[in-house]
């Protein structure tokens, strides 16, 4: 649940940051920021995957310890 809230928050913040300058930023400089956004999306995806494994492992560790 916490994860959903956090990722929703990140999405909202990035949306509002981009909202005003979105057109000029993404269309300008030869659209290089589209590539940056793509790479950041992949980075975020990998981080989410790692976080999920991290949490599962922590749970397992706790259960084994108990």
């Amino acid at each position: 649940m916490k994860r959903v809230i956090v990722s929703g928050l990140i999405l909202f913040v990035s949306q509002s940051i981009f909202a005003q300058t979105e057109q000029s930023l993404m269309e300008g400089s030869g659209k290089i920021y589209v590539v940056l956004a793509t790479v950041l999306a992949i980075y975020a995806g990998i981080l989410i995957f790692l976080t999920i494994i991290e949490r599962k492992l922590s749970n397992l560790e706790r259960q084994i310890r108990e």
Partner: peptide, 9 residues
């Protein structure tokens, strides 16, 4: 333009 680089990602 530069988004041709997305081919690598």
């Amino acid at each position: 333009y530069e988004t041709i680089r997305n081919l690598f990602f």
